[in-house]
Design a protein around this nucleic acid. Structure first.
Lengths: 184, 184
DNA sequence: CAGGCAGTAAACCGATTGGTACAAATTAGA
DNA sequence: TCTAATTTGTACCAATCGGTTTACTGCCTG
């Protein structure tokens, strides 16, 4: 017998994918139930606050993933290895550009005004974690911040362009170029 | 009693701003009428095809603007001046990052699948026009294409990050950094 | 000055929206 | 195995969705 009973932790990744592909407004309750297989009963059982609470949980889940796999390594581990690991983690996480950044997508429309702190926190921490690693690798503070900003914004832009042009190799190519810029 | 009379060409920029801020799904007919001042009667008089036709007209309008102010100069005018003009036009058009790229925003969610050609065409032409100018300025073809891709994606990413961090100076700063990369 | 037509307002439509209620089913713990 | 708690499907709700229709402006032209 196949397991048909979900718990909250099963629901979040499914919700994440729905919001990622449809956007916050585009993700209607019925499209969410259709693609996750979770009924409204289950959804509102796990997330009494409705769609907004679902999105909050997803945002938090994404944030945690990046903290564990990207931000903390940049902050605590050997900077050279952590930066190399970041490029690898990013390429894997975004599936070579086939997967969009939920938080970046939310930032673009009025969804931003619904979750301003979560969206701001994610990018600010990414940039400062990367800048910190660059400082420890020998850059001066101003250069490091500039380069970190450049890298993070390049990743977001590469995701936009990959979706827009349907060029499957663009993302990985852009990542290599961005990595090269940090080496200078 | 004053009666404000619009024509189609007045409606398009207003619609553009609505779609830009709300996204395609987020822009409901009532939110559109509220912020444009155009009634549904007027809207459906101008765009019998409904919301989709409104978005098509807006997409076309944006494309035309970029052709006239960015793509054609890059393709036809003296490349150095055209590239410098591009940075200026982009900074002005996106209001130093306060304004989002409609086409980039559409590219991120399933709205892309509604207007795939228009979205693809915009970015492909931008990259190839810029690459062409870079070639005429002395770069080899491969480097030129890479740099052009890098610049366009950087602009899109800078818009995402500006919205996300609410850092008003980020966009112009990113533009300067991107311009510097092209100089190498 | 009569008619036509681009533009407007408002009432209206069925479908779908996010959200609720609650009983039935399933689970884990004793 | 009995029970209490968790999880789920379904029917339902008011509000709003995108879209249609109709009646009405005011201006331009014949």
């Amino acid at each position: 017998m196949v397991k048909t009973v979900f718990e909250k932790s099963d629901a979040i990744p499914l919700l994440a994918e729905a919001f990622r592909e449809l956007g916050y407004e585009g993700a209607t309750l019925s499209s969410i139930t259709a693609r996750t297989g979770l009924s409204k009963g289950s959804l509102y059982h796990f997330f009494p606050g409705g769609k907004e609470e679902m999105a909050e949980a997803v945002l938090d889940h994404v944030d945690r993933w990046f903290i564990a796999h990207v931000f903390q390594p940049l902050e605590e581990e050997e900077p050279g290895a952590a930066i190399a690991g970041m490029w690898q983690a990013v390429d894997a996480y975004f599936r070579a550009g086939q997967r969009v950044c939920l938080i970046g997508a939310f930032a673009l429309d009025e969804t931003r005004d619904r979750f301003p702190q979560a969206i701001n926190r994610y990018f600010v921490r990414w940039i400062s974690a990367l800048a910190g690693a660059l400082i420890r690798v020998g850059k001066d503070e101003k250069t490091a911040t500039q380069l970190a900003e450049h890298a993070v914004l390049g990743i977001q832009g590469a995701l936009v362009l990959t979706r827009a042009t349907a060029d499957g190799k663009l993302f990985t190519r852009a990542l290599e170029r961005l990595a090269a810029v940090l080496e200078i």
